[in-house]
Design a protein around this nucleic acid. Structure first.
Lengths: 114, 114
DNA sequence: TCCATATTTCAACGATTATCGAAATGAAGG
DNA sequence: CCTTCATTTCGATAATCGTTGAAATATGGA
């Protein structure tokens, strides 16, 4: 991961509501979650949520797909792992002091909650 | 680490110049680096640098001490590790999928470069 | 076709951010 | 004491951010 991408990902996660959204997506796993379900879970207005989704998508931390009238957002685990890798690599002066941690999606869930 | 602190740390690192500063401090190790040396290394005006130092300090990612006319800034490895821990813990739905990575300062350096 | 649902787009707003130039502070040395 | 060096403080600026209300778009069902 390039420094530019790392800064983008960090910025995307450096906001209360957005961090909440991402954490929720991570919990939901690869099945993802509808925008509405997230709006309900976090009690956020839909337009505000769209704004934050855009940030996460732009940073490569989430993807969207349509499902009927809903849109389903999914966490992008690879980007998160790349970020963790970047941070650990750049943490000890180029010589990694610990194996980069990785994150796999949680065991399958009912997904698309609500 | 609390969510609030995580957001603060993320925000502190989510900026080009500041990420550079922090990486430099990490490379310098526990000996730290003078503000002047950093200013020279990154070609940043001293007042701008002070601004960024404040952010890093406020986020707990750096500390200062005085040495004669200079001020020496040092990376706070514990906070960085705590952040990595927070991110990995919150990455797989509460159940960590990998041991949290840790970061120890690089092998001692000449430190206080310049 | 018409209506309800789900989400996005748009314009606006106050708040925060990163940077700058100029002036102030603090410490060491002659 | 006066000067020089290192860093910080202050005031201003343009740009970006997060949120809002209102209107638009897209989908599915009666």
């Amino acid at each position: 991961m390039e420094k530019t991408d790392a800064v983008a990902a960090l910025a995307a996660l450096a906001q209360d509501n957005r961090l909440d959204v991402f954490r929720l997506l991570v919990q939901a796993g690869p099945g993802g979650m509808t925008a509405g379900a997230i709006a309900q879970a976090l009690d956020l207005p839909p337009n505000t949520l769209t704004f934050h989704f855009d940030r996460l998508r732009l940073a490569g931390l989430a993807t969207v797909r349509r499902d009927g009238r809903s849109k389903i957002y999914t966490a992008q685990f690879e980007t998160m792992n790349a970020l963790l890798g970047f941070l650990t690599e750049n943490c000890c002066g180029g010589a990694p002091c610990a194996p980069a941690p990785t994150c796999k999606p949680a065991r399958k869930r009912a997904s698309v909650t609500a």
